[in-house]
Nucleic acid binder design. Structure first.
Length: 469
DNA sequence: CCTGGAGTTGTCCTA
DNA sequence: TTAGGACAACTCCAG
């Protein structure tokens, strides 16, 4: 009888899980383990919203394991000593896990794998979370890609879609005493700010396949245009499930390929799949340029004249009290639900970095703490792209106008009124520019804009031209 | 090594 | 009202 430990991290699923599959094939018994070790991810330890999701996703994984004859062993502390203790307590001879790609985690896992192998343990890692390993895609010169389109063309051409590994029906567990309860990890907030989270989300693998199939059947045809409208459910909302590995990108590729679709739906599916491509590209970039989690990819921007860090402005942005309706709606949606619509993410990020000229890291840190889908590669890539210092960034003169964008993508104002109820007093024509009716504005209690959009745009263009030129 | 086409998501002014 | 062009130049990448 041999036993293997399966070390779960951000692959909180039973289906299409290669580490779990390998353990079940090569061993008689499996001990599924989760180790809470946030400091090992410093300086990007999971934020408050992520911890909320993690709590519920672990609970769901534990329930799924119990349904198959075992349970999740939960521990806290340094990963290597915890694993060594469990290896000894269970007489396991192997530890299997699925790879992650953030710089701090790679460093930890590399050291840990060598230490376990030196102990004589069969330590193996697998790819469960990406379509391609970051080192598998390279230019003809064998360098990493820095532009999305050629990256995705190359990856897309090489992709072999395979059926997902089925979830095991039964898992023979190893009996080890001393597991913590998930509650003991203290992942949930101590003050109850999470009511809106519970209304918005259902963490865990169980519902995800159905969620994806429903999206394919009902929304994917309109995805290319509806994805830009923040008041409509035009996006997949799969991001937190993907981040925690409740669903793999290969499961998405397979579902898209196997669904019968009209020509229009196929077009939408390709557009949607390219967003999965962006996730791959973000991982590729952070893997090859690990310093970018804290520093500009493009060093030309190191001399950029950010405004002095301004706590007051930053707080107004965080609280959704900037006086710019679509910015405030987005920031309040984020605070209430742990998520923000993608187009609005671009708008609030452009507003913070260009109109307020606050360093992109201020925004990245706030998103990191408040998003349930906070993901280091995506967050880094997204903020640097918007700020202009990232890979293939927007031309510097591309500054979003939140009024124009609001009127274009939220024409009736439904989105801003939902999240900023003060704006219910305003007609459609003024809802994105309420300052143009000062009397009504005073009565509503909604603030004046904290910055002049035209003047701050002009200032940003001057600074960007100086840095770029 | 050279060449040339191309690059997620925009805004504003002018005619 | 709407459509077109300016806004810069640079780097990336394939051939």
């Amino acid at each position: 009888m041999s036993t293997a430990i399966v070390w779960f991290r951000r692959d909180l699923r039973l289906a299409d899980n290669p580490a779990l599959r390998a353990a079940l094939q090569a061993h008689d018994r499996v001990l599924p383990v989760y180790i809470h070790a946030p400091d090992e991810e410093a300086p990007w330890q999971p934020g408050a919203a992520s911890r909320w999701w993690l709590h519920h996703s672990l609970t769901a994984l534990d329930a799924a394991l119990r349904g198959r004859g075992t349970a999740l062993y939960v521990a806290a502390g340094e990963s290597l000593p915890v694993l060594r203790g469990l290896l000894s307590a269970s007489s396991a001879v192997a530890v299997y896990w699925n790879r992650l790609y953030e710089p701090a985690v790679i460093a930890r896992d590399t050291t840990l794998k060598k230490a376990l192998r030196d102990d004589g343990i069969d330590a193996q890692s697998f790819n469960a979370n990406l379509l391609f390993e970051p080192w598998e895609i390279a230019t003809a010169q064998q360098t990493p890609y820095k532009v999305f389109t050629p990256f995705w063309r190359n990856a897309r051409a090489r992709l072999q879609v395979r059926p997902p590994l089925p979830a095991p029906r039964r898992i023979d567990g190893a009996e080890v005493a001393g597991s913590l309860s998930i509650d003991r990890l203290a992942l949930l907030p101590t003050i109850a700010w999470d009511a809106g989270f519970a209304e918005s989300w259902k963490p865990g693998e169980a519902g995800v396949a159905g969620h994806l199939r429903r999206f394919c059947a009902e929304a994917i045809g309109d995805y290319p245009s509806a994805r830009d409208l923040p008041d409509r459910p035009g996006t997949s909302r799969l991001s937190p499930h993907l981040h925690f590995g409740e669903l793999s990108p290969m499961q998405i590729a397979w579902t898209l390929q196997e669904s019968s679709m009209s020509a229009k739906q196929k077009g939408g599916a390709e557009k949607f799949f390219s967003e999965i491509g962006w996730r791959e590209f973000s991982h590729h970039l952070l893997y090859h340029f690990p310093h970018t989690a804290l520093e500009n990819l493009n060093p030309r921007f190191d001399g950029f004249a950010w405004a002095a860090g301004d706590e007051r402005l930053l707080r107004r942005w965080q609280q959704g009290r900037t006086g710019i309706p679509i910015v405030d709606a987005g920031m309040r949606e984020l605070w209430t639900t742990g998520w923000m619509h993608n187009r609005v993410r671009m708008l609030v990020a452009s507003f913070l970095t260009k109109n307020l000229r606050q360093h992109w890291l201020h925004g990245a840190r706030w998103f990191w703490d408040t998003l349930v889908d906070a993901d280091l590669p995506n967050n880094t890539q997204g903020w640097q792209w918007t700020a202009g210092c990232g890979a293939d960034a927007a031309p510097y003169f591309r500054v979003f106008n939140p009024v124009t964008q609001g009127e274009k993508f939220d024409a009736k104002g439904d989105y801003v009124r939902r999240w900023v109820p003060e704006l219910r007093l305003f007609p459609d024509t003024l809802v994105h520019r309420p300052w143009q009716d000062p009397v009504r504005l005073r009565a509503s209690g909604y603030p004046q804009p904290i910055v002049d959009l035209a003047a701050s745009r002009a200032r940003a263009l001057t600074e960007y031209a100086r840095t770029a030129g």
